[in-house]
Amino acid sequence: MIEIRKLSFSYGKQQVLRDIDLRAEAGECVAVLGNNGAGKSTLITCINRIREPEAGGVFIDGVNVREMPRRELAKQIGYVAQKNEMTHAAVIDCVLLGRRPYIRMSMGEEDVALCMEVMRRVGIDHLRLRYLDELSGGELQKVMLARALVQQPKVLLLDEPTSNLDPVNQYEMMHLVRSVAKEQNVTVLTVMHDLNLALRYCDRFCFMKNGGIFKSGGAEAVTEETIRETYGMPVRLGQSGSVPVIIPFPDYGNHPVTKLERTSLSDGMYIRT
């Protein structure tokens, strides 16, 4: 279980996160949603201390992450970055990196065995000797997920895990994330832009706006009004089988685009008028 209490962060004088409160249980998949610049990625990187929050705290099973040594923290939290380096390193070596928090001098046979097991689970064992710079975007994302899972974390932080993936790979990736979360009782916090994908695979939804959490909750929190307030975009909420789906207005996007000048901290936030 992870709990974020009154977390705040600033880039210089610009406050990016303010008083964030969030709680997620083991095995739960939480989607962090919002416009570009709303503070989603910053929130993710403050949780595992890639960035040091200026106030508030993050607690894993009641223990403040600030009190954990870096190595211990890396055993608790796995992280997949938004952009991954396509270096000339073999897949197996990249996945083995996930064991770094557990080793002192060198990798043991049990580390290698665990990596192979995770790669099989993620479906990339056939790629193990390929180089990262030879992989497709979808394969690379799966390798990064495998590396994070090899850390055997209690919490998995994913920063836009489906960006740059084709629809098939997007669904495969999210299906995998959800399955792993449920099987291994891992809490997943994932930044997402695709609302329909989030609705299909996540248990709870956390809408961010102007550095704060605007609204959060289960599927009932995802309403036409919440989405319009969060993104400044009118939508209709429909149903596909048992899953709710978001449908933008058909004529949306045909209007000129002007910069949104009110309320937002974000430079990249636009609204159609």
């Binding site: 870096r70 923290l73 970055a81 991954n84 270096t87 390193a89 990196l97 996930g98 770094r100 932080l157």
Partner: peptide
């Protein structure tokens, strides 16, 4: 080699 953020997340 995997990026500064990833390295930090690995401790």
């Amino acid at each position: 080699e995997a990026g500064a953020h990833t390295a930090k997340s690995l401790g």
